[in-house]
Design a protein around this nucleic acid. Structure first.
Length: 596
DNA sequence: GAAGTCACG
DNA sequence: ACGTACGTGACTTCA
C-alpha cells in the first residue's frame, strides 16, 4: 500500500517543507477551484518525491489563510536549484502567479516530455499511467461526478481529495523517472531542457498578458455584416424560389443539385451527401447566379459567427483583454496551437476579413503593434537542408524565389515572368513542402493535371537536390520509422511501411513535410525564448503577445520601438545558423493589420 | 458527438 | 483503377 498522508496542521506543513527544501527534485500537483488558470484558486497541493509516497496539503478556504499556507511553500516554488516536476506545468505556473508566487525552473513537465517521445499520442496523465506504469488512476469524475450534477472540488472535504491528489503527484514523479532516461536515449533531452521547458514560461507570460481588442469597432462591423447577410439571404431565396437553411450543407446540396441540377455528377462527401465546399462551388459560379451569392453569404456568416460576434465575449472582464491559450503538446510537427480563442487563424486574406484583424490594437496610446515574420522560412529551410545549389544561391542573392522558380520552370527570362506564372510557381513551391502530386497541384492552381505533371518534372530538374533530399527523408523514415528536425525533434511515422498505399502515401508526405514544418517551429521557439530573456534583462515594457507559426506579435512601447525592432530581428534571424540567410520582416502600426 | 465547412500558417 | 498536398481550432447542423 502506498503511503499517502494528509498534512493538515501548520507544524506538519513546516516539517514537510523543511524536508522538501533539501531535495533536488519535487513533483507536485495543484487542486484548484477552476479550470481557468487565470482565475483558479488553490484548494490543495500534493507533493511526491519517492515511489509509493505522497503528501496532500489542503489549503483552507478564505484568501488570507490560503495565502498563509501557500507562503510556507513559496521558497520551495521559487528555489532555482530544485527541479519542479509537473504534468502540464504551465497551468501550475498560472495558478501560483495568481498568488504572486513565481514558480521557477528547472522544470520537468511530464506531458511535454511525452509529447517529445510520442507526439501523435495522447498525453493525459491517465493514459500515461496506463501505458508506462500499467496503472489506472482514480478519475476526477469519481470525485465530482459528471454532467449536470457535477460538483466543484471546493465542496469536497480534504480527506476525499487526498488519495486522488497524492496519486496524481506520485504518478507524475514516477513518469519523470521513466521519461528522463528515455529522452536522453532518444537524443531529445537538449530540445526538452533548452527549448521546450524554457518556452513554457514564455507562453505563460503571453497568455497572462493577453491582447487588447477594439470591441466598439467590431460591434459596428457586426451590424454591417448582418445587413449584408440579410440581403444575400433574400437574394438566395428568391433565386431558389423558396426559403431554406443556407447554412445547412444538407439542405444546400439538395437545392443546388436536386432542384437546380447544377451538376449531374456532383461530388459527394464520404457519407454520400453532396459536397458544397468552397472548392466545389467556385467551379459552379458560371452555372447560376445563386452560387456566388451563397459563397459570399457563407464567408460573411463565418466572419460574423467565428470572429466578429464571438471575440468580444472572450474579453476577460477583469483585465479587459483577450487571453488565448497556447498548447505546446498537440501539433504532431512541433508547432504550437492556440485556442479559446484561436488567435492563429485571424482573417487576413479577404478585405472583409481584414476588418477583424484591425480590431487587435495596442495596450494604450503609448504602445504600437509590432509584427515580425520570417520571410519564406520553410523554403529557406528546405534549401538549407537539401543544399540545393540553385535554391541556396537564389536566397543568398536575396532574389524573389517565386519569380526565379517561374523563370526556370517555364524557361523564360526573369523580366518576362507574368503574374500568373509567378503565382503558379508559388503554388509549386508550397506544394514541394507538402509533398506534391500532379493532382494536388492541379487542384490548387490554374494548371491542368498534365501541365502540373510536367511542371513538377521541370521543378526537380531545376532544383535537383530537392528531389534527392525528399527521397532521402522517405528512405530514412522507412529504415528508422521516424524523421527529425534540425533540433532533433522526432516525428514517428508508424505507417511508413504500410501495405495500404493511401496510408503509406500520407506517411511519405509527412516524411517530407515534418522536418521542414518542425524545424521552422523549433527555430521560432528558440527565438521566442531569446527575446523573452532580453526583454527581461533590459527591463523593457514591450511584450510578446502572440505567435502565429512564423510570426511574432508585440505590444511595442513607443520609446522602446527602435531597440525592440533590432532585438527582435536579431533574435529571430540568429535563432538558427543556416547556409541561407533567414530574413525577418518587421511592421509597425496602430493595429495588427497595419503592422503587416 | 460526428460531419461538413472554413479561418490561418 | 485507385485517391490524392502539410498542420491546426471553431462554428453550425443534425442524428
Amino acid at each position: 500500500m502506498p503511503l499517502f498522508k494528509l498534512i493538515d496542521n501548520p507544524s506538519s506543513c513546516l516539517t514537510l517543507f523543511e524536508h522538501l527544501i533539501t531535495l533536488k527534485s519535487v513533483a507536485f500537483d495543484l487542486q484548484t477551484s477552476s479550470l481557468d488558470p487565470l482565475k483558479a484558486r488553490v484548494l490543495g497541493i500534493s507533493f511526491s518525491c519517492k515511489n509509493k509516497e505522497a503528501y496532500y496539503v489542503p489549503i483552507p478556504s478564505g484568501d488570507k489563510e490560503g495565502s498563509k499556507t501557500l507562503s510556507i511553500f513559496k521558497p520551495l516554488f521559487e528555489n532555482i536549484r530544485i527541479e519542479k516536476v509537473c504534468q502540464n506545468i504551465k497551468y501550475d505556473l498560472h495558478v501560483l502567479a495568481n498568488y504572486g508566487i513565481r514558480l521557477n525552473g528547472p522544470f520537468f513537465d511530464t506531458m511535454i516530455a511525452h509529447y517529445l517521445l510520442q507526439a501523435d499520442m495522447g498525453h493525459g496523465l491517465s493514459v500515461l499511467a496506463e501505458t508506462y506504469l500499467n496503472y489506472s488512476p482514480i478519475k476526477l469524475e469519481a470525485l465530482v461526478g459528471k454532467g449536470k450534477s457535477q460538483i466543484n472540488l471546493l465542496d469536497l472535504p480534504p480527506e476525499k481529495i487526498k488519495d486522488y491528489a497524492c496519486e496524481f503527484a506520485e504518478i507524475t514523479w514516477r513518469l519523470k523517472e521513466r521519461f528522463a532516461p528515455l529522452l536522453k536515449k532518444e537524443g531529445l533531452y537538449s530540445l526538452f531542457k533548452n527549448v521546450e521547458m524554457p518556452l513554457v514560461c514564455v507562453l505563460a507570460k503571453m497568455e497572462r498578458e493577453g491582447i487588447n481588442l477594439d470591441c466598439e469597432g467590431l460591434t459596428i462591423f457586426s451590424k454591417e455584416l448582418t445587413s449584408s447577410i440579410t440581403k444575400f439571404e433574400e437574394d438566395i431565396y428568391s433565386l431558389a424560389g423558396f426559403e431554406f437553411n443556407i447554412a445547412s450543407p444538407k439542405q444546400l446540396g439538395n437545392v443546388l443539385f436536386n432542384h437546380l441540377k447544377l451538376d449531374d455528377k456532383a461530388k459527394k462527401t464520404k457519407t454520400g451527401q453532396f459536397s458544397t465546399s468552397e472548392e466545389v462551388l467556385s467551379k459552379l459560379k458560371k452555372k447560376h447566379l445563386i452560387v456566388e451569392k451563397i459563397l459570399d453569404f457563407r464567408s460573411l456568416l463565418k466572419l460574423r459567427s467565428t470572429y466578429v460576434n464571438s471575440l468580444p465575449g472572450l474579453v476577460n472582464p477583469t483585465t479587459k483583454r483577450i487571453h488565448s491559450s497556447f498548447n505546446q503538446a498537440v501539433a504532431a510537427t512541433g508547432r504550437l496551437s492556440s485556442k479559446n480563442p484561436n488567435l492563429q487563424n485571424i482573417p487576413i486574406r479577404t478585405e472583409k476579413g481584414r476588418e477583424v484583424r484591425k480590431a487587435f490594437v495596442p495596450k494604450n496610446d503609448q504602445y504600437l503593434i509590432l509584427a515580425a515574420d520570417y520571410s519564406q522560412v520553410e523554403l529557406r529551410l528546405i534549401a538549407d537542408l537539401s543544399g540545393d545549389p540553385v535554391m541556396v544561391d537564389t536566397f543568398k542573392k536575396g532574389l524573389d524565389i517565386h519569380t526565379i522558380t517561374a523563370s526556370k520552370i517555364f524557361n523564360i527570362p526573369i523580366n518576362e515572368v507574368s503574374r500568373e506564372m509567378r503565382s503558379n510557381a508559388k503554388t509549386v513551391n508550397f506544394g514541394i513542402i507538402y509533398g506534391v502530386s500532379a493532382f494536388g497541384l492541379s487542384q490548387q492552381s490554374s494548371l491542368s493535371r498534365k501541365e502540373s505533371g510536367e511542371i513538377i518534372k521541370n521543378y526537380f530538374e531545376t532544383y535537383p537536390k530537392l528531389k534527392t533530399y525528399m527521397d532521402s527523408n522517405v528512405a530514412f523514415a522507412r529504415k528508422f520509422g521516424y524523421v527529425k528536425t534540425v533540433m532533433n525533434r522526432k516525428r514517428i511515422l508508424k505507417d511508413i511501411n504500410s501495405r495500404n498505399r493511401v496510408v503509406r502515401g500520407h506517411a511519405e508526405r509527412n516524411a517530407v513535410n515534418a522536418p521542414i514544418q518542425g524545424s521552422a517551429a523549433d527555430i521560432i521557439k528558440v527565438a521566442m525564448i531569446d527575446i523573452d530573456k532580453k526583454l527581461e534583462k533590459l527591463g523593457l515594457k514591450s511584450r510578446l503577445l502572440l505567435q502565429v507559426h512564423d510570426e511574432l506579435v508585440f505590444d511595442a512601447k513607443k520609446d522602446e520601438l527602435e531597440l525592440l525592432k533590432n532585438l527582435v530581428k536579431n533574435s529571430m534571424e540568429g535563432a538558427y545558423s543556416s547556409s541561407v540567410p533567414l530574413v525577418v520582416d518587421l511592421g509597425v502600426g496602430l493595429n495588427w493589420l497595419e503592422a503587416h
